[in-house]
Amino acid sequence: MFKLNQAVTPTQITHAHRLWLYALVGLILLFLIIPCLIVIPMSFSASQYLEFPPREWSLRWYEAYLGSPEWMMATWVTVKVAVISTCIATVLGTLAAYGLSQVRGSAAKLVNSLMMLPMLVPIILVAVGVFFVYSRTGLNNSITGLVLAHSVLAIPFVLIAVGNGLQGYDMNQEMAARSLGASRPWAFLTVTLPQLRLSICSGALFAFIASFDEVVIALFIVGGESSTLPRRMFANIRDQIDPTVAAVSTLMIVLSILLLVAMQYIKRLERRQQH
């Protein structure tokens, strides 16, 4: 529709007129992408200090990461917490989204706004509040406590994703199943749920990354053996810098690229489903 190569009318904008815009946006895109990628080559450096470009290459920082029981323990804790929180948040969020999509009225509104609260409240407040309550209930420094807090953080993501999915879903299909004799839960499981699977997956991906990357709460409520990977990284970065962090960061960047690709794939499938 837009052929900007040459002006048809005296006032029309051409590519040449827009060169400044292209240049500016190019710079902005570089600004966005460079910090996400620069760590990758640096993590393969052989030197004790971070250099770019590295003068010598080696895998020593990856060896340091893989060989360190503390880093391994932290990785294992993080994965465990992220997986369990994702499961909890996905199940609870999906149930809630389904219930809220069917009921109107002030009670439903109240429930909805409370469950969206974790997105609104600054994370530092959640961390401080949770720390205070946990210190009175003995949940500090426990995986259970961290899982509970991360599940709460992740619920709004699932609620939004599944809620969006339900908006495009025709509930009459479930009615049809029920009129043919299926009970409501059975109709939900066999008719509605399979059609919501993409929305649920995208909610779960958001939930996973929200827990996997979470630092501030972990900073307050866990330490030592139950430290998560981001918590260890934070301490390492603050207390200056052993390039092992660069290796861990590279692995986390690879993970986020994978998740991004998965997300785009889900979106594509969703679009295809709608047509």
Binding site: L32, I33, I34, P35, C36, I38, V39, I209, F212, D213, V215, P230, M233, F234, I237, V245, A246, S249, M252, I253, S256, I257, L259, L260, M263
Partner: peptide
């Protein structure tokens, strides 16, 4: 990609 990359990693970078 930045949106999905951990804030911690980007801050470190």
């Amino acid at each position: 990609l930045p949106f999905w990359t951990s804030i911690l990693v980007r801050t470190y970078a």
